[in-house]
């Protein structure tokens, strides 16, 4: 099944979860902003696996990931009204909130070695499709498509994107780690995301 989004034809598998998410996420967050705890529970049920997976990936510690998940959901409860659907999906918003909380936790503890450890676990995204969050949200076929799109990126672009998202290293630190100019790292991130976006929209 295809549908139009922002005037472009976007692949959408016949997956109930995805259709429901796209249609009701905005409404869930509006209700959360109004203090609706049932909507908050619904949002938890929908996105806790994604958020916990991101926190666990970054922190490599399930206990700390639990703390981050709780802190992030409290943040969502307090700031649901700040979500702007024109700027992206609720899932991306929830994931980036979680990512930022996890990175903040590492930095607050000044565990520089943890940042480097996290950065050392390169290619956070496994080469095989096996029980990823995308499978839960989109189903096997689209998850495989997404994986192929990500794995199809030039290695240096994928590396720059993954380090930027998961490692918590600053762009300067990534440039130093990879022994590349800062401008090169930023360009790789830009080109990689654009390429991935175009592939996913194709």
């Amino acid at each position: 099944m295809h549908r139009r989004w922002l005037g472009r034809l976007v692949f959408c598998p016949n997956n109930v979860n995805e259709s429901a998410n796209q249609d009701t996420d905005d409404e869930l967050l509006r209700q959360i902003a109004d203090g609706n705890r049932a909507a908050f529970a619904g949002f938890y049920d929908r996105y806790a696996p994604l958020m916990f997976s991101v926190a666990t990936k970054i922190l490599n510690d399930s206990g700390e990931a639990e703390d981050v998940l709780q802190e992030t959901f409290v943040q969502i409860w307090n700031k649901a009204a700040t979500f702007d659907p024109h700027l992206g999906k609720a899932s991306s918003w929830a994931a980036i909130l979680t990512r930022n909380k996890a990175i903040d936790r590492i930095r607050a503890a000044q565990r520089r070695s943890r940042l480097e450890e996290s950065a050392g676990r390169e290619f956070a995204i496994r080469s095989e499709v096996n029980e990823t969050v995308n499978e839960l949200v989109y189903g096997h076929d689209k998850a495989k498509f997404i994986h192929q799109a990500i794995c199809g990126l030039p290695l240096e672009q994928r590396q720059a994107i993954e380090l930027s998202y998961f490692s918590g290293l600053t762009q300067d630190e990534i440039a130093k780690k990879l022994n590349e100019p800062l401008g090169t790292i930023k360009a790789r991130v830009r080109r990689g995301l654009l390429k991935l976006r175009d592939r996913l929209e194709s």
Partner: peptide, 28 residues
């Protein structure tokens, strides 16, 4: 907004780890 499609894909492509069931009630 269009780029968020790519970042959602990146975030979701990691291994899925479900939170413990007890965490749900704690957060609620």
């Amino acid at each position: 907004a269009r780029l968020s499609t790519a970042t959602e894909a990146i975030a979701g492509a990691i291994c899925r780890v479900d939170p413990p069931p007890s965490l749900r009630s704690k957060i609620l």
